[in-house]
Write a protein that binds this DNA or RNA. Structure first.
Lengths: 215, 215
DNA sequence: TTTTTTGATTACAACTTGATAACAAAGTTA
DNA sequence: TAACTTTGTTATCAAGTTGTAATCAAAAAA
């Protein structure tokens, strides 16, 4: 379980973050000013630091320079564009602007942890394994060469699995979204996926509607 | 346009929220105590409820348990961590602590609505569950494949349940509404629904009139 | 440039749907 | 009861939808 340091001086926000990250399964430590943040970070090894830019005593910018090696997500008040740029330059792994959706924060935390731990994103079902990072697809461990459009279509199906997607929707997801009405393009590509990956059962035709990847 | 229920006993704050959300393009309904909130929520379908924790008569905590399916943002003056945790556990979609910036509230409202838009609307009776968003029907958890017209007819019955519908009315609801007089089309489709879903009892024949879905 | 690959489109085959007809069964009236 | 009306059910087939191989222009690679 990853350990996260929350450095944020507004107690209400700090608490809210802690509650949500705890619920999401992370172990959290709260600090409320820059000096405390630095001391705590030196005493313990954290997998990630959520760092408010404007902290009492030491600013986030000053702290990040000392945190070499530890991933950081900057938390900034709205609209300070220059702050964000500065933060990223100084080595932040991501930033998030207040006020933010908790789910968004959790997604970013997950993403940074995934990235910094060198984990690869994969998606698997049946005998199919999709390496999302390098866009390669394996069936029973054997790589199946998909053409770019075919892969894009597959990813669209995965991201919208279990729901029926109209041809229009698929075109807007995979193709450059303005598109004249009536073509068989989607159909042909769907057939390719079915044939190459043996997905006849999984990619279902929804008559008069479109297609659905059923998992 | 999304409909939002504002449950907040301090009239000044309630009005302030209403004014701002109305300006932001939402349709608002104001209530000032917990009992009223619950009643109003049952009478109408809201896309979101802004729920003060400390309401007269019924607390936000008590109300949220009854509001299954409707997104909730808790509004609280307390900063007690345990309150928020309790709220999140009970299913609040987000939290906002008074005093708050109106812009922040609007941002959160937007975010929650965006997120919950994807939620599935379902209609259930007996052992039948209808997923309205993806037009799929389950009986005892097993999907029953309905043809497009069959599904349309079922939805027409659901939307007009407990009242007798003439064949003409059904045709105007389900078919492209001009239609010459005397065909057995509706009858045949009604039989399909009865057979596939075991609705012989529920879809009643009203002699000389039409059919009624009796729930 | 030439060659190769990609992928949109066409054309037609195969399949699905659902309106209708035909007749059986059930209900109504006298 | 018989005569008649209304509803239930099955089978059929035209229209509409989807599957698929072949073609060819555009893009990418050599």
């Amino acid at each position: 379980m990853a350990k996260i340091l929350i450095a944020e001086d507004e107690k209400a926000i700090n608490d809210l973050i802690r509650i949500n990250l705890t619920l999401a399964g992370y172990e959290c430590k709260q600090v409320f000013d820059g000096q405390e943040a630095l001391n705590t970070a030196f005493e313990n090894k954290f997998d990630l630091v959520l760092l408010d830019v404007m902290l009492p005593k030491l600013s986030g910018f000053e702290i990040i320079q000392e945190l070499k090696g530890t991933p950081v997500i900057f938390v900034t008040a709205r609209s300070a564009v220059s702050d964000r740029l500065k933060g990223l330059k100084l080595g932040a792994d991501d930033y998030i602007v207040k006020p933010f959706e908790m789910l968004e924060l959790i997604e970013r935390v997950k993403a940074v942890l995934r990235r910094t731990k060198g984990e690869t994103r994969q998606f698997e079902f049946d005998d199919i394994c999709i390496h999302l990072d390098d866009r390669r697809v394996f069936k029973n461990g054997i790589e199946i060469a998909l053409k770019p459009k075919e892969y894009d279509l597959l990813e669209a199906f995965i991201n919208n699995r279990n729901i029926a997607l109209s041809r229009e929707k698929l075109i807007s997801l995979v193709w450059d979204f303005d598109y004249e009405g009536d073509t068989r393009t989607v159909d042909v590509h769907v057939q390719q996926l079915r044939r190459k990956l043996g997905l006849s059962e999984r990619i279902q035709t929804v008559y008069k509607t479109g297609y659905r990847l059923q998992l």
